[in-house]
């Protein structure tokens, strides 16, 4: 089973410098945090998805579609009950549904932006990009290693679940506390396997000369090019527009009035 997030294809986005992609990801996060307006957030999400399509990485979104849908559903249900104001239909408030939708779009925007970054950037490029941003190599490597460990842990826990199910572990039955207790036979072997694996991993690293000198060469060449500056400029322009929108109330209100029910500024 292929557990790795990186989508190994050629695309415009794949060829961008990792620093550019990192910046674009953080810009998406910034826009997500700045606004509480459904229209603006949806527009931002559409932009991010278009960028992902450019990077031929939307297939990865399919893999996390369950997560995205679950977040949306949870947000809708919880906020429609928890939101105090507005007209209610039974226990659900209409205002709450819209608020929940807004939060869902906001959260999914950030997840999708992060996913597209990981789908189009090799872990070595992430590490190298961070090094170029003056982050020490060891720290950059540790960060990229953490990303890589996730699929390893998922694969191991998959085997462990099968082994324990074969012994009669039934995860579906029982109340909440019983269910939590049932995860012990899964957690402990997973932890131990991961610890054992990382131990060998670090021995293998050292044995291949990791950390021999601070001066390290790189097989991959990352360099800022015209398309990087173009993308960064475009990104920063969008952010500037967003800031103007945020600061200048008259423009913001004009926008918000198109669909006033979806605005929670």
């Amino acid at each position: 089973m292929d557990m790795f997030l990186y989508v190994d294809v050629e695309s415009f986005v794949h060829r961008l410098d990792p620093r550019t992609k990192l910046l674009l990801m953080f810009l998406s996060f910034a826009v997500g945090v700045m606004f509480n307006n459904i229209l603006i957030l949806t527009a931002a999400l559409a932009l991010v998805v278009a960028y992902g399509a450019l990077g031929r990485s939307l297939s990865n979104l399919k893999r996390i579609r369950v997560v995205l849908v679950m977040i949306t559903l949870f947000s809708l249900v919880i906020w429609s009950i928890a939101r105090p104001s507005g007209n209610r239909f039974l226990v659900f408030s209409v205002d709450g549904v819209l608020y929940g939708l807004m939060i869902a779009v906001k959260t999914n925007l950030m997840i999708v932006a992060g996913m597209i970054f990981l789908s189009t950037t090799k872990i070595e490029e992430i590490a190298q990009g961070l090094v170029k941003l003056k982050i020490p190599y060891r720290a950059a490597f540790a960060f990229s290693t953490a990303i890589r460990l996730v699929p390893m842990i998922v694969a191991t826990s998959y085997t462990i679940i099968q082994a324990q199910k074969s012994r009669g572990l039934d995860l579906d039955s029982g109340n909440l506390i019983e269910k939590i207790r049932k995860y012990v036979p899964l957690m402990i072997p997973t932890l131990i396997s991961v610890i054992r694996g990382t131990n060998i991993f670090s021995m293998a690293l050292e044995s291949k000369g990791f950390g021999y000198s601070d001066d390290r060469s790189n097989l991959l060449e990352i360099r800022m090019g015209g398309k990087d500056y173009a993308m960064m400029t475009a990104g920063l322009l969008i952010l500037a527009a967003a800031v103007v929108l945020k600061v200048d109330h008259s423009i913001y209100d004009a926008w918000a009035s198109i669909f006033p029910w979806g605005d929670f500024a």
């Binding site: 694996g197 293998a204 291949k208 000369g209 990791f210 021999y212």
Partner: peptide, 19 residues
């Protein structure tokens, strides 16, 4: 546990890169 790179080339390159 010994392999950690994105592709075969990068895996082989890791050692020499360190030097």
């Amino acid at each position: 546990a010994q392999l950690f790179s994105t592709n075969v080339n990068l895996e082989i390159a890791f050692g020499p890169e360190n030097f």
